[in-house]
Write a protein that binds this DNA or RNA. Structure first.
Lengths: 123, 123
DNA sequence: AATGATACATAAAACATTTAGGTATAAGTG
DNA sequence: CACTTATACCTAAATGTTTTATGTATCATT
C-alpha cells in the first residue's frame, strides 16, 4: 500500500479501533479494503490505514465480540463484510466520545502555546 | 505513580513529545516531575504522564538536539531543568500544528457518527 | 501480456509505553 | 520520633500496536 500522509503516523496510534468502529456505526456493513479507501477519501489522503494494521484490528474486534462477519462472493473472490454487534455499537459510542474528550483536553493543554511569530512562516 | 485517568491511555500514545515540547515552549525551563504535575493540574487529572515514559522521552529529545539541560542543586537534591534549543522551538511548533491538524481531521472523520439515541444515556 | 487495482492475510521487526522496580531527600503528621 | 507522603531522579523487562515486508489471487485496463 502506497503512503504519503501529510503528518506523522505516530498520532494515529491508538485511534485505529475508534476509526473502524465509527465507520461501521454509520455504514451498517463494510469490508476491509473498503474501509481503507473510505478513510483515505474522507480525509483527502491525510489518514491512510495500512492493511498490516487494519486486518489484525478487525480480527481482534471480532474476537472481542464487537463485530460479526459475513462472506459474500463477488465473482470468484470472497469479500468479508463486517458489521457491529450490539456491544460493538456501544463500544463505537464509547470510543468516539472518548476520542472527542481526549482531543478537547489535549487542545486545551496545547492551547496556551502560541507559536513564535518569527517561526510561524517556517516549515 | 498513581493513576486514575478518565479515559484510556491508548490515545496518549504518540502525543508525549508534543506535550513536553509545547509546555517547554511556554515555560522557558521545567524539570521532569514539574511537567507531570503541570499536565495533571491543567487537565484536571485527565492526562497523567508516567515517569517511565516521561524520562526516556526527555532523554531522547535531548539526544535529538531539541532540549538542553542544566542541573540545579536544591539543598542536597539535584534538579534537572530542560529548555528548548532553537531546533526544539521549531519542533514544538511543528508538533503542535501537526496535532491540531490531526485532531481536526479525525474529528471530521468521526463527525458523521451520530450516537444511537437509544444509547446516548448509557455508559 | 503486463500493470495496477481490488481483496484477503500473516509474521518479523521496530517502537513507544506500561509495569515494576530502584535510590534518595524533604516535608508533614500522629 | 517514627512513619508516611511528596518530591525527584532513573532503568529495564514485558507488553502491545504498528510498520514493513511478504504472499496469494482475481479483475480491469492498456
Amino acid at each position: 500500500m502506497y503512503h504519503c500522509p501529510m503528518y506523522s503516523q505516530e498520532l494515529l496510534k491508538g485511534t485505529l479501533q475508534t476509526i473502524v468502529l465509527s465507520l461501521l456505526a454509520e455504514n451498517e456493513r463494510m469490508y476491509g479494503y473498503e474501509i481503507t479507501q473510505h478513510v483515505k477519501d474522507k480525509t483527502a489522503g491525510e489518514i491512510q490505514l495500512t492493511e498490516g494494521a487494519l486486518y489484525p484490528t478487525l480480527h481482534k474486534l471480532e474476537a472481542d465480540g464487537f463485530l460479526t462477519t459475513e462472506k459474500v462472493s463477488i465473482g470468484k473472490r470472497v469479500r468479508k463484510y463486517y458489521s457491529l454487534t450490539e456491544n460493538g455499537n456501544k463500544q463505537a459510542n464509547d470510543k468516539v466520545n472518548e476520542f472527542r474528550r481526549f482531543s478537547e483536553t489535549m487542545n486545551e493543554l496545547l492551547n496556551s502555546f502560541n507559536p513564535n511569530p518569527e517561526l510561524q512562516w517556517q516549515s
